[in-house]
Design a protein around this nucleic acid. Structure first.
Length: 195
DNA sequence: CCCTGATTCGC
DNA sequence: GCGAATCAGG
């Protein structure tokens, strides 16, 4: 695959939108995220500020061949530490429109989304996906679970027909993508369930 | 271990 | 110019 006009355009667009290099690579196909990053740098848009007209500081540091003694590092310019406590949470609060053209419009915070007032029901698609996933689940036992295996239980714990999904989890979350979709149901249907 | 981007350098 | 290998950080 070569970098055609179109592909470069897609690259630029997605990069500007804040998509990760791997996502872009996946979208484009035929290239690795390394290729994408390399291209990004060659295009001179490593800084995701669209303008890129500002100071283009150049690190004069040279690196060793890296194999025998990969020790020296460029040591990128570091800003002075701020004495003031910094906000830990990265919230989607309004940013100054003047200097912040775009952050990450698409990627969620990584936290489970709060229940949506309007869309409480689990989408039929999600349920469908879950059924599919359960068929292809890795059927891990409790002790086989790791930090990033889906911990969604399947079957009856009281019977031998019990296992855990075990598919790769969505980053940060305890479940795979399919189960994340159904895991956080805002307790609507069981609301008026009678015991 | 999963991911992220950054850099180098042989091709 | 290209991108795998590598580095560095979360």
């Amino acid at each position: 695959m070569s970098w055609t006009e179109e592909r470069v355009e897609t690259l630029k667009r997605m990069w500007t939108e804040g998509q990760s290099a791997s996502q872009i690579a996946k979208e484009l196909g035929g290239v690795t995220r390394n290729a994408v990053i390399g291209k990004v740098h060659r295009l001179g848009l490593s800084n995701r500020a669209g303008g890129s007209a500002s100071a283009a500081a150049k690190p004069a540091a040279k690196e060793k061949p890296a194999k025998p003694a990969p020790k020296a590092k460029p040591a990128p310019a570091k800003k002075a530490e701020d004495p003031a406590p910094e906000p830990v949470v990265e919230a989607p609060v309004a940013e100054t429109p003047a200097l912040a053209p775009l952050r990450k419009p698409i990627i969620p915070a990584g936290q489970p989304l709060p229940p949506q007032p309007s869309a409480n029901e689990i989408s039929p698609e999600a349920l469908e996906t879950v059924r599919e996933v359960e068929k292809t689940a890795k059927k891990l036992s409790l002790m086989e679970l790791t930090e990033r295996t889906c911990k969604w239980p399947i079957g009856d714990p009281a019977t031998p027909d019990f296992w855990f999904c075990g598919l790769p989890v969505q980053q940060g979350k305890p479940y795979c993508e399919a189960h994340v979709g159904v895991a956080f149901q805002p307790m609507s249907s069981r609301r008026d369930r009678k015991r």
